[in-house]
Write a protein that binds this DNA or RNA. Sequence first.
RNA 1: GGGCCGUUAGCUCAACGGGUAGAGCUCCGGACUUUUAAUCCGGCGGAGCGGGUUCGAGUCCUGCACGGCCUACCA
Length: 501
Amino acid sequence: MPVAETGDPSRLDELIDERRAKARALRDAGIDPYPVGVRVTHALEQVRREYDGRLEPGEGSGAQVSVGGRLVARRGHGKLVFLVLREGDTDLQVLAALDTLGPEAMARVEDLDLGDWVGVAGEVVRSRRGELSVQAGTVTLLGKSLRPLPDTWHGVRDVETRFRQREVDLAINADARRVVRIRAAAIAALRAEYADRGYVEVEGPVLHTQAGGALAKPFVTHANALDLDLYLRIALELHLKRLVAGGMTRVFEIGRVFRNEGLSPRHNPEFTMVESYEAYADYHDIMDLTQALLQRAAVEAVGTTALDHDGGKVDLGGEWPRRPLLDLVRAATDRPGLSYDTPAEELRALAAAHDVHADPAWGPGKLVLELYEKLVEHTLWDPTFVVDYPVEVSPLARRHRSDPHVTERFELIVAGRELANAFTELTDPDDQRARLEAQARARAGGDEEAMAVDESFLRAMEFGMPPMGGLGIGVDRLVMLLADVQTIRDVILFPTLRPER
RNA sequence: GGGCCGUUAGCUCAACGGGUAGAGCUCCGGACUUUUAAUCCGGCGGAGCGGGUUCGAGUCCUGCACGGCCUACCA
């Protein structure tokens, strides 16, 4: 009837109208299509676990269960109907027989639609063909589905649907559920490893009065009560270091950070980082920590350190090599004599020879880093700690104990991508102030990503900090590696998209 | 920000040099008491939005929207 009202309804509208009509008919019969107070005795997964390997084909268990799930398949045989319920990753068959249910209940089973949430109470049996099933004694509609789901055979491939309507993706695509579980297990493993090492989990502020701790453009928002512009955090670093100054000698935080920059298969404006700080540790200790964290995350999330990735293999097992950044650039450019004392003009010429863009304002450190990023980083496949980054590009890292040109900093590269960034932290307040002031000058010169001088942070440092090592891990990229997916949008449940129209 | 590409039924995909758009699944009607992509018979349903060229446009041109890839940017 709404067909005439809307004039030219789409097929989808017709399908929805049919389902609404069924819901209406149920209400008219005194049945709530959205009931409450339903209890189940077993998750579907529990039924499978308890009866896997038990019961002969055609045998009944005598045990009664009450289960729930989404109806994802139906095979009708007239007086016998096979239903398949899905709950999470588990599917379980239901036998609905006219003999057992009677004509009235059987008619309501016939009226169920794929996508409906359904409760079934009955005996656990094995069908004649050997499929573990529940022989339905009662069938209850738990939640009427008004909108047809994509068919379970083909799934949903359209990426826009998958990202915008993640509920559909999860309901239909087992791989989407797999990634969610890997993510959860990896994060749980990181927490467990930190807990085992005596770290305390903390939560810093998300709203900052100035954005610091990384080089990135922030999002700006406004606090009405304070009539104050605030910035969404771009890193966790500065507040965590203040906590160490306060005597919290081992702290970590897992949290969302926000960077107002471009989107790409590897960048989402909001993403998840874990950062940790450990008093008395240096970057060598943090490399050991990083290796332990990621190896544990791999084992607990996917069961092995030998990962399939992007058509190849990546093994996170064993000891990971530690390679000075300058050595890597020397090798890549075939210039063994290269150093941070090499004149900038010569480095610029070298960059030009390798088609690497070089800004005239850059000094030797930045030029060497640029050469590394363009020539070397993407070539590092197995886990590699790249160590000793130039001072001028590392404003929060301590100078190297024996080389004034570089800092005690490393990045972990796996499969050509940065997974972690860490250093022996700078704890000298005067050195820190000088570095931040250099950043502030760059900022005044138009560099929107340069840091500002954070007086609260400097004051904390002036009270005195223990020596410490700090670590930041990109959780999304870690999950991409573990789950073998190529876009960050596959590991973030609701990635940033333009609004649909 | 720039370049290239995509958008066909609820889902997954076709076709054609510009000439009435096909299939499978889903859905609707029917048969069927052990199927599991059940099967069998019958049926409904479609070109992202807007302009233009043309006798005629899903197809050619163009604007817009959304998306993808590359690039730029990016600790």
